[in-house]
């Protein structure tokens, strides 16, 4: 009979051999072999998908499975946590991955800082009014640190 031999490079060569010898030498028919390879690939893919689904963003706790279900990410860090999974998706949507437009200059958070200062001032005057001087001292330190930022 003729059997197919699959060498290390994945090349299939046909050799003539009797059935018994073939079995003894561990040969299988080429169709079966192909089926096995396909099964192995599917199995591997499933395992990768399962692994992807188990991925979780440490910052916001969103899992990749949840993202796949609802289509929305949980926080900016999700783009880091799921980076490798998102790249092909982004390419499918936009035909590109690299941003080329306006850039953020890393704002100085003035509004956020001003708001924090205003809140601390409010808390401080409250603490003084309540004569809670221990709390007031702590708030004053915190206020000083915030203002210096």
């Amino acid at each position: 009979m003729k059997v197919s031999q699959l060498d290390k490079d994945g090349k299939v060569t046909e050799i003539s051999i009797c059935a018994e010898c073939a079995r003894a030498r561990g040969f299988t028919e080429v169709e079966k072999l192909k089926a096995n390879v396909a099964e192995i690939i599917t199995e591997l893919k499933n395992r990768i998908d399962e692994g992807d689904s188990r991925l979780i963003c440490r910052t916001c706790g969103l899992s990749y499975a949840e993202f796949k279900k609802q289509g929305r990410l949980g926080c900016a860090d999700c783009y880091v946590s799921f980076h490798d999974q998102l790249v092909p998706l982004i390419r499918r949507i936009h035909d590109a991955v690299q941003h080329v437009g306006r850039t953020a200059s890393g704002g100085r958070k003035q509004a956020q800082q001003k708001m924090n200062v205003a809140k601390l001032r409010e808390a401080l005057s409250g603490a003084i009014q309540d004569e809670d001087y221990e709390k007031a001292a702590a708030l004053r330190d915190q206020l000083r640190r915030t203002e210096e930022e």
């Binding site: 850039t103 953020a104 200059s105 890393g106 704002g107 100085r108 958070k109 003035q110 509004a111 956020q112």
Partner: peptide
């Protein structure tokens, strides 16, 4: 952007 930091 002068007032707040964007996710970028």
């Amino acid at each position: 952007e002068r007032q707040l930091q964007y996710a970028f």
